[in-house]
Structure formats: C-alpha cells, structure tokens
C-alpha cells in the first residue's frame, strides 16, 4: 500500500511510517493468536522500551508515576473494602440446598479464573467465568443473575475473582471453532465503529501511552487482568461494562453484556494478557 507524502514533511513521513508499521501489526488477519500477541508485545515494547511487560497490568498507570503512587496508597486502604466484605459473604452463603459456589469449581474456586473464558466445543461457545457462576446457580436451583447487574453478578465476582489473584492468565485457543470465536473478537477490536470511526485499537494500540484530552490511554495487553474495577467507593465496573462504556464514547451502539459479541471480544482480550498475573478488584479513576 502506498502512502502519499504531503507537504507536512517529516511529521507526515513519520505518520506514514507509523501507519505502515501499524499495518504490519494489525493486518495479519490469518495470524495465530500467539503471533497476534507477540506482534503487539513487540510493537508496545519498541514504543515504550522502559516499561516491562509485567507493568502492563496497571494500564494507564504504568505511564504516569504520580498516578501510580496515588493508586498504591488508595490500594493500601481501598474505599471499596465494605463492598468486598459483602461480596465474600455472598460467595460463602450456602444456596437453599446447602451447597456453595465453592462446590461447583475445582480447588473450591481458587486459582481458576485464569482459565476463563474458555471455548466449549460442545456448545460451540465461549464460556466466561460469569457464565460458569450462573451455571452453578442454576444447577443448585437458584435463578441466574443478570450479566450486566453490578449489584449481584458484578459484586459476587469482585470476591470470586480475587480467589485467583496471582494466577497467570492462561487462555487456550484450540481448534477451528475456538479460532473463529477468537477471530470474531479480534475483528470487533479492529473494526471502525460508530460515527467517529474509531476502533478499540485506535485508542488501545495506536493511542496507547498517548493522551486523549487529559486521559492517558492504556495498551490492550494487560487490560483483561484486574476485573471488576472500582471507580470510587462503590461504583463497580466489570470488564464487559467497560467495553460498553468505551463503545458509547465512540458513539457506537454497545452490545449486550454477556452476549456473544462481547464474550468473543473478552476471549480475544484475555488471550492477549496470557502470562500476566490476575488481580481482582482494583481502583481506577
């Protein structure tokens, strides 16, 4: 593809080169997930040589030492501690049949979340951790929670996910059906949507480390590791609610939380964070 150089000179030439190298990063429509992840890591580490991969779990904070130290002091005494206590109670309280959530999961629910989402060949669907929670509820005679409900599903997972803190993300994409779910998520990530014509990649690949007005933009690698987040004491946001929030910002119609589109997007997203440690319920601005 040829890029025309305008009389903007060096700056435009640079823009053209950046665009060309971006094209290399994003064009590989038939790349394997491992190649996608490696390409992005190469792209980010060339652009930000001083930020080691394990800092990507901090998102935009990794680019701003002041915000990072603020974050650390907030996390010493998180304002959402009470909510987490209530969340633990939800997890520990037995169902009417006497069984508990812990009975539904290996290791009583400890160190499992890094395996979610996984692709289930039988149902030919991506299964998120929230879907596994609902399956557990239904199997024990309880009604399913609504996926977008911060006060039930969101709150419960703020504790349930923390049982896997420190586990490394470990998403697998095996077989053609799993690959195609991953590819759909990837396509959504790079598609220009909404009136403004942004893609998720506009801000979280090309824009990572830059400011959108006063907001520092986080890179996509690491974004899936720390959910839900609290913005303040009790404003709880799940990963998919954040997807919807960014969709609104780009004036695109958000998809349903817990629906196939965002589940596929979460699958793609989580794969990109493979090898990074999970840490549930962190503070975000």
């Amino acid at each position: 593809m040829a890029f025309k150089i305008r009389d903007g000179g060096v700056k435009n030439l640079l823009a053209a080169i950046t665009a060309a190298s971006l094209c290399l990063v994003i064009s590989a429509a038939d790349a394997t997930p491992a190649q996608d992840r490696q390409n992005l890591i190469n792209y980010f580490s060339a652009k930000f040589p001083s930020i080691p991969l394990d800092k990507y779990v901090y998102g935009a904070l990794a680019f701003d030492p002041d915000a990072m130290s603020q974050y650390n002091s907030i996390m010493d005494f998180p304002p959402f501690g009470t909510t987490l206590d209530e969340a633990k109670q939800m997890w520990d309280t037995p169902f009417k049949n006497g069984k508990t959530y812990a009975s539904c999961f290996p290791r009583g629910g400890k160190n499992i979340v890094g395996d979610y989402p996984y692709f289930d060949d039988q149902s030919a669907k991506v299964v998120t951790f929230e879907m596994a929670i609902n399956a557990c509820r239904v199997a024990n005679g309880e009604p399913a929670y609504r996926y977008g409900d911060a006060t039930t599903m969101g709150k419960l997972t703020a504790y349930a996910r923390s049982l896997s803190d420190g586990m490394l993300m470990n998403i697998k994409v095996n077989g053609a059906a799993a690959q195609s779910a991953y590819d759909l998520g990837k396509k959504l990530f790079y598609a220009r949507r909404g009136q403004l014509g942004f893609s998720c990649a506009s801000c979280h690949v090309m824009g990572a480390g830059e400011r959108y007005r006063s907001e520092l933009l986080s890179p996509v690698i690491g974004q899936a590791t720390h959910w839900p987040v609290f913005r303040g004491a009790d404003s709880l946001v799940t990963l998919q609610a954040r997807f919807a929030g960014c969709d609104k910002a780009l004036r695109a119609q958000p998809f349903a939380i817990g629906g196939t589109e965002y589940n596929n997007l979460e699958y793609f997203y989580s794969y990109l964070s493979n090898g990074l440690p999970l840490h549930a319920s962190v503070f975000r601005k």
Binding site: Q195, L196, F198, G207
Partner: peptide, 8 residues
C-alpha cells in the same frame, strides 16, 4: 492521506 489514521 492515511487510511490507518485515528483522526475521525
């Protein structure tokens, strides 16, 4: 000028 631009 730049098909990959992020500018709307």
């Amino acid at each position: 000028n730049n098909p990959a631009t992020v500018m709307p």
